[in-house]
Design a protein around this nucleic acid. Sequence first.
RNA 1: GCGGAAGUGGCGGAACUGGCAGACGCGCUGGAUUUAGGAUCCAGUGGGGCAACCCGUGGGGGUUCGAGUCCCCCCUUUCGCACCA
Length: 823
Amino acid sequence: MTHRDHERVEKRWQERWKRAGAFETPDLPTGPGYYCLEMLPYPSGRIHMGHVRNYSIGDVVARFQRRRGFAVMHPIGWDALGLPAENAALKRGAHPADWTRKNIEQMRRQLRRLGLSYDWRREFATCDSSYYRWNQWFFLQMWKRGLAYRKDGEVNWCPGCETVLANEQVEAGRCWRCDSPVSRRDLPQWFLRITEYAEQLLDEMDRMPGWPKKVLTLQRNWIGRSEGAEIVFAIEGLETDSRVRVFTTRVDTIYGATALVLALRHPTASAIAERNPEVAAYIEERRAHLARAPAGRAEDAEKTGVDTGFTAVNPFSGESVPVYVADYVLMEYGAGAVMAVPAHDERDYEFAKKYGIPIRTVVIPDDAPAPDGPFTEPGTVVDSGEFSGLPTVDAKAAMAAHAHRECFGGPRTVWRLRDWGISRQRYWGTPIPMIHCGSCGAVPVPEADLPVELPRAVEITGMGGSALSRSEDWLRVTCPGCGADARRETDTMDTFVDSSWYFYRYLDPGNDQAPFDPKRASAWFPIDLYIGGVEHAILHLIYCRFWTRVMRDLGLVDVDEPVVRQLSQGMVIKDGAKMSKSKGNVVDPDAAVSQYGADAVRLYVLFEAPPEKEMDWTDARLKGPARFLRRLARLLPGDTPWLVETKLPDGSETFARADLALRRKTHQTIWRVTRDIGERIHPNTAIAAIMELTGALAARIPRARTEPARRAVREAAETVVSLLNPMAPHLAEELWERLGNSAMLADAPWPVWDEELLREDEVLIILQINGKLRGRLETAAGADREQLIERARQNPGIRRHLEGLTVSKVITVPDRLVNFVAR
RNA sequence: GCGGAAGUGGCGGAACUGGCAGACGCGCUGGAUUUAGGAUCCAGUGGGGCAACCCGUGGGGGUUCGAGUCCCCCCUUUCGCACCA
């Protein structure tokens, strides 16, 4: 096989597979099924190396499991809604739909060139209304159950373009297009009540051994369960709404509370502001300031606040403490108010120092001296009435219980996770199926009217809000409730909605009665392996877990979790940096495939590093795997015509030592590769093992003159080709055929190893004195311990070093080592 | 600051439950073939030493007959989160 042959060979096999429908999967598996899934790509225009890596890894597993006898579900589709399509529309005037379709065409061609074993009949794009109508349907189900609701939410607002901006459109606090300073605005937004599932989502993670620890940790932190207590303080002299709840994880420090601090947006802060112009002015000034601040929080910003003049009663001590309004208290977390304990909290300490709030120590360290600043560790409670003398842990429990008894609070758990805001003021997304009616309010679109399709004729200007809000024909409807004139909701859904359940749709992409047939879901789910980039460790991988639970509660699926095993593959970088157009370090997969072939490119990305690690693309290294493939192609059958005629060993042969050694290597390699792919998902070491076997095979071929020798060679040759198939499928098929096999390798069963041949009969024993290597010993496996020690003593290295020493003990590991402990 | 992960030849990386450190590959050196090669083949390749040997998995301690692997402390690099009470 010459340099240029790969193109012909690869095209040939891609056509064969297609013609034979080799990778088409039945809707319901007849035997055991395996669902191998990779994250679907966004059709940005061209595939990049991250895709090549992701899909190559998935393809290895899919092809492997298929040959192991599973019905393998291995689909692909397009995450086709989203902002870039609108940006393209702005830049070059193409309609988002056309731009997207064109990109899909192009990228599909690129993926096909890689020889991936997808069942292409299941392909769909999330911008198909036949898909997103089910987003809408799910939304309506959630609305019915109170899982979807509308409330004010904060958005990035560009006053220049008069539009809402996504976070990534805000650059250093300014609009990416017109450079106006971006402010924040409260607008009504749609939310999904994911917090309802926070506890389940968190607890289940203890039972998800197939997920990377890293991902689980990220998700745990994101959900952020926090155990503490809620305590009610009464504000003195304020008639309306005078009770303020605070959340704390350190109730044990409550006797040290020397202030009550409210968030800027706290209702009580507003009530106070009505009476106190100074407070009102402060709140307004701060909120205006924060509105101008860049998206993301001002982390090291200096804390500011204002003394309201009001006081609140600490229900534990009965003491009155001043009430402040300050910018460091978050309205969205806990109760939106905190008790300030400067002696035992960094932030309160900083705040108290600045405003002269007293610092009162109520917890002392158990063994260390008290620190200069706040003491935030657990210790022993002091000066705290009846609770004095208790260790922190006990005080927490006792005080929370006390609060509960006395009806001014009690134990409470709060979550960092917020409800999922799905509203986007965009055109190219799933329209939220709601109608606003003057008399009925927000009314759901009747299910029979779904899908609410995106109007094709819109003008995308990037100004003046979403294009939908300017699409009068589309906007105007009659209210399904009262028949009055009404308007459609113009917000569209976050595209994370699309990717939260797409993998169910692959099972039944043509279904127009339901999102999918539950029988199919039950047959294929949970997904056995889900591969994608680490960047989705949190959002996508939590949303899709949430969605599956909602679907479970709707009775659509019978699993709690969608994914058994998750693999977060590392990024592909170049010269130590992320590939990007601006850096000009993008490697185009097509160019590499044209030069070296899909097999070589696949082999390279698989071989270069284990999947979960970052991988630095280096052109020069691609030569290694490419060279290996070329060498193999020359070797088989090459100038070894007898290879095609030779049979496989059938047990009747008597093998010479070298032939037996080759057979051992063959079977050991089957074992290793099976484990490396099937269990560890480390194609890199699988490939190394195959290369080793190839080396042994190549060395043996010219010496194989007897029939048994040739059979051993034939076995090794077939094995190399067969094991290589998941990684380099085209060349493997080609060589398999050249070796005289008529059936496709894709349909051939995965090789099995002979246990007998796994074991070496000759072993190398390591000889040590006090753990230091002093000699080696070749011997038959299973040698007797005493004999082994005797033979070890004869070893020149051992004899020399044992001279003058007394052996106190000999440690042996059967078939491995003899270690003399001597002094 | 909090939390996680990782530090092994010139480079990417191997090393199952503690038992030959450096598999496999890139690169490099020497040789062969070649008009030429950024093609191919053979041999070598952790460091030091003529050698026997000695030293080597970020640094320092420890456990063990034996540590890349287990425990403690430190350093570095990375990735999340970031006023979450």
